[in-house]
């Protein structure tokens, strides 16, 4: 049992390192190659965990080999379009100028129900509202509405937001976030003055946010018990 425990810890470290090596791209929508790698890595790790007769090296080596292949392939696909086409495929237009491309839908084996489901997941319940719809390489469907059906933006309404930057977390749970102060162009003196005005000590702060326009939100810690 101790051997299984130690092997689990080692494999955990290897799998975490592998996922980190693959990068953040891996953690979002999966490309076909990434899906394959994820399934293979989890399977190999499970085999090595379950069977202590298999040398740990025989589990670690293929995991790292697959991850290296994935990173190298993704790097190559970044620089060479043909490689990208082979590994990830290319986006396919399934609705063009409001008309479903039936041939493409057949080629992608998408039924009308699948198409309408994908549109509904994009918040569109009427096919006539769609100008373009594209099946991305990761299988998701991106939709562009017809101009007449688009919601007006703040810019259209000539109603710009006074401060475009979102508020940052300056202090949380009694701890100061120095980088947030730097990002806001403020310093400790400003924070001390603000807290003094609010009759609050830093240790009493549950949450303090601020933006560049000077808007702040302070929530004090609640008394325990």
């Amino acid at each position: 049992m101790t051997i299984v425990l130690i092997r689990s810890l080692i494999l955990y470290a290897v799998v975490i390192a592998s996922v980190r090596l693959m990068g953040k791209r891996q953690l979002g929508e999966l490309q076909p190659s990434e899906l394959v790698i994820t399934i293979l890595v989890s399977n190999i790790a499970t085999l090595s965990l379950e069977d202590t007769g298999i040398p740990l090296l025989c589990g670690i080596l293929p995991i790292l080999a697959l991850v290296c292949c994935e990173v190298i392939a993704s790097q190559l696909s970044l620089h060479y379009t043909p490689v990208r086409r082979i590994i990830s495929g290319s986006p396919k237009i399934i609705i063009r100028e409001g008309r479903p491309d039936q041939e493409m839908l057949r080629a992608l084996r998408l039924s009308v129900d699948d198409l309408l489901c994908a549109l509904r997941m994009n918040g569109i319940f009427d096919l006539s509202e769609v100008q373009f719809a594209i099946v991305e390489t990761n299988g998701s469907v991106s939709v562009c509405r017809k101009f007449a059906c688009e919601s007006p933006t703040r810019q259209d309404l000539d109603c710009p937001r006074p401060c475009a930057d979102p508020p940052l977390l300056v202090a949380a749970d009694g701890e100061l976030r120095e980088h947030a102060l730097d990002a806001l162009g403020r310093d400790r003196a400003w924070l001390c003055a603000f807290l003094e005005d609010a009759h609050c000590r830093l240790e009493e702060v549950f949450l303090l946010t601020a933006d560049r326009a000077g808007h702040t939100q302070l929530i004090r810690k609640e008394a325990v018990g």
Binding site: L21, L57, L61, L64, V67, C68, C69, V71, I72
Partner: peptide, 21 residues
């Protein structure tokens, strides 16, 4: 970066494989 690290790890894996043989 990740690419260079992957190349280094790939080289290490080849060395480990050859060494094991």
């Amino acid at each position: 970066n990740r690419f260079h690290m992957s190349l280094a790890v790939a080289g290490l894996l080849v060395a480990v494989s050859a060494g094991s043989l």
